[in-house]
């Protein structure tokens, strides 16, 4: 656990470990490996971190792809409008020639 230097709450660690030690020694219960609260808290913090990162990445990606496609869509719409105007212009010219 030491190589993961996540910020973990420092001061409640000691008393809780004492409490946990007291709990595991209660009669009729078995000690579960790797389930001590410190590890669980660490895992939760890690998962929250990942979740934040994924959410932020997700919004960044949506923005980036949205921008790219919006740019091309706007340009396409401009081209289309210009084509319509040109066609009208051509029709006016032909009407004048008649």
């Amino acid at each position: 656990m030491n190589e993961l230097d996540f910020e973990q709450p420092e001061q409640p660690e000691q008393p809780e470990q004492v409490g946990e030690a007291a709990q595991t020694q209660a009669p009729g219960t078995k000690k579960v490996e790797g389930r001590d609260p410190a590890t669980v808290r660490l895992k939760r913090a890690y998962e929250a971190e990942v979740e934040n990162k994924v959410a932020s990445d997700y919004s960044h990606i949506v923005w980036a792809y949205g921008v790219i496609w919006a740019i091309f869509a706007i340009y396409g719409a401009l081209l289309w409008r210009r084509a319509v105007a040109q066609r009208a212009d051509l029709a006016a010219l032909q009407a004048k020639q008649k």
Partner: peptide
């Protein structure tokens, strides 16, 4: 020229978005 500007807008907007992430 128009396509350069258009693609440039795309690059210049997506670049900072990526950099921010």
């Amino acid at each position: 020229g128009e396509m350069t500007v258009l693609a440039g807008v795309g690059v210049l907007i997506t670049g900072p978005i990526w950099g921010d992430a």
